[in-house]
Nucleic acid binder design. Structure first.
Length: 442
RNA sequence: CGGAGUGUGGCUCAGUCUGGUAGAGCACCGCGUUCGGGACGCGGGGGUCGCAGGUUCGAAUCCUGCCACUCCGACCA
């Protein structure tokens, strides 16, 4: 993505916290000019927030592709008749936003896409030779929550990555589930999060096998109980063999106790987990994986021929990641009193260059030189070239949380020096511009 | 869906009880002094007080209805 000069950007930061914001991430997203609420649970993503959303989306995309999933894009609006095939049109209830078009056709704004992907699958896939198949998209969803809250963490409109796997039999379906499980471990870790898979109830999606991926944070919606050794397990490397047997990885991550309060079994917990390893915390759900077999393929007649020529319903799973919720979850997990602290991988810009005296020829020249150099190496600098006062620039830069701050002013330049600050630690060093660029580039 | 609140300029809020020319701080515009962690002075612009109806000589303020948003709880891939 491109670099930016703040004088040309749109970054409406707020000094005061809007009164509707209760939790940290919501407050910081509003103050940092990332979002603006347009209705209850519905937000406009302003440029800074939009960039973070795109960064997260890209990490999700890369890990899904690596795990063998194939991207497509389904519409937000769906026909009611499709949902009548699975029986969920009546079952889903008031959370579904129902719409009637000018021809009086009943439609809905999709809360999820099992029906539609099953329809797409059955139209084209007839043979086991085309399996396994995993199709995913990253698309806006709408669920008419009774009580939206916590900003983008529980909005009504939200961006979700949803993947759907199709296999010939249950064993192959479990292998598809395992691939997504491993992909999820990797993608959350790449965003700087410790996401713990926990055994979960399946809810309206159905099926009997499901895990939620939970980020530990004080403001989490649900209480969780876990064996804290799970937090130290190694994340599968980027050369993980998705065509091989992943069950050892899954076993390592699922044999230690971890459960949300809804499914918590105190007896088992106390039996299986030594007292020193027990940990109670709160968590934010950022993803969930399901294997539900033929729950949709049978009623919707999505069948494939096996090697024996007999038709059988596809074995399916679905896999969701709350992309927009992750923006809030990452902030909940990474901030301080001054503002957001973005992990490098999802930061909207890599380096904030602060020109302490915009208009001063020497400062301007040094900043432009740094801006050009950082742009060339792909560090995506944001140059504060406005004529605000230094204090305001420092505060705003801390608030928006870019990983590095390159501070360039007349006092330092007189000695041939600039200041480099690491946002996460607050560490500062005074050094030459060239040396600073070296440090930033690692 | 039960309960409790709040709607006054972009933001935070006062004014409503007790009706009488719509306010403050921040932000914004101009000028000047400033300038390394949210400066100061002077001047200026911006609000059908959520909407509709009613009472009244007169309504941000009283009455009725509606709408929106927030919080607590229940619910929640």
């Amino acid at each position: 993505m491109s670099p930016m000069r703040l004088s040309r950007f749109f970054l409406p930061v707020l000094k005061q916290t809007p009164s509707e914001a209760q939790i940290t991430s919501h407050r910081l997203m509003l103050r940092a000019g990332m979002i603006r609420q347009e209705a209850a649970g519905i937000y406009a993503w302003l440029p800074l927030g939009h960039r973070v959303l795109r960064k997260i989306e890209q990490i999700v995309r890369e890990e899904m592709d690596r795990a063998g999933a194939v991207e497509l894009l389904m519409p937000t609006l769906q026909l009611a008749d499709l949902w009548r095939e699975s029986g969920r049109y009546d079952a889903y209830g008031a959370e579904m936003l129902r719409i009637t078009d000018r021809h009086e056709r009943e439609m809905l704004y999709g809360p999820t896409n099992e029906e539609m992907i099953t329809e797409i699958f059955r139209a084209s896939v007839k043979s086991y030779k085309q399996l396994p198949l995993n199709l995913y998209h990253i698309q806006w969803k709408f669920r008419d929550e009774q009580r939206p809250r916590f900003g983008v963490m529980r909005g009504r409109e939200f961006l979700m990555k949803d993947a759907y796997s199709f296999d010939l039999d249950e064993a192959a379906g479990r292998a598809s589930y395992d691939r997504m499980f491993v992909a999820y471990l990797r993608l959350f870790a790449r965003m700087g999060l410790k996401a713990v898979p926990m055994k979960a109830e399946t809810g309206p999606i159905g099926g009997e096998l499901s895990h939620e991926f939970i980020v530990l944070a004080q403001t989490g919606e649900s209480a969780v109980f876990l064996d804290k050794r799970i937090l130290d397990l190694p994340i599968p490397a980027d050369d993980v063999d998705y065509r091989g047997d992943l069950t050892p990885v899954i076993d390592a991550w699922t044999h230690l106790y971890a459960a949300t309060e809804d499914v918590h079994d105190a007896t088992r917990y106390e039996r299986d987990t030594a007292e020193v390893d027990r940990m109670t915390a709160r968590g934010i759900e950022v993803g969930q994986v399901f294997f539900f077999g033929d729950k949709y393929s049978t009623p919707m007649k999505a069948t494939v021929s096996g090697p024996d020529g007999a038709e059988r319903p596809a074995q399916m799973g679905s896999y969701g990641v709350g992309v927009s919720r992750l923006v809030g979850a990452i902030i909940e997990a990474s901030h301080d009193d001054a503002g957001i602290i973005w992990p490098d991988t999802v930061a909207p810009y890599g380096v904030g260059i602060i020109n302490l005296r915009a208009g001063d020829a020497t400062c301007d020249a040094a900043c432009e030189s740094a801006y050009a150099a950082l742009t060339t190496v792909g560090k995506e600098p944001l140059l504060d070239d406005t004529d605000e006062r230094p204090g305001g620039k420092f505060a705003a830069m801390d608030l928006i949380g870019l990983p590095w701050q390159l501070i360039i002013g007349p006092r330092g330049l007189a000695e041939g020096m600039v200041e480099l600050k690491r946002r996460a630690t607050g560490d500062r060093q005074t050094l030459s511009l060239d040396a600073a660029l070296q440090v930033i580039c690692g």
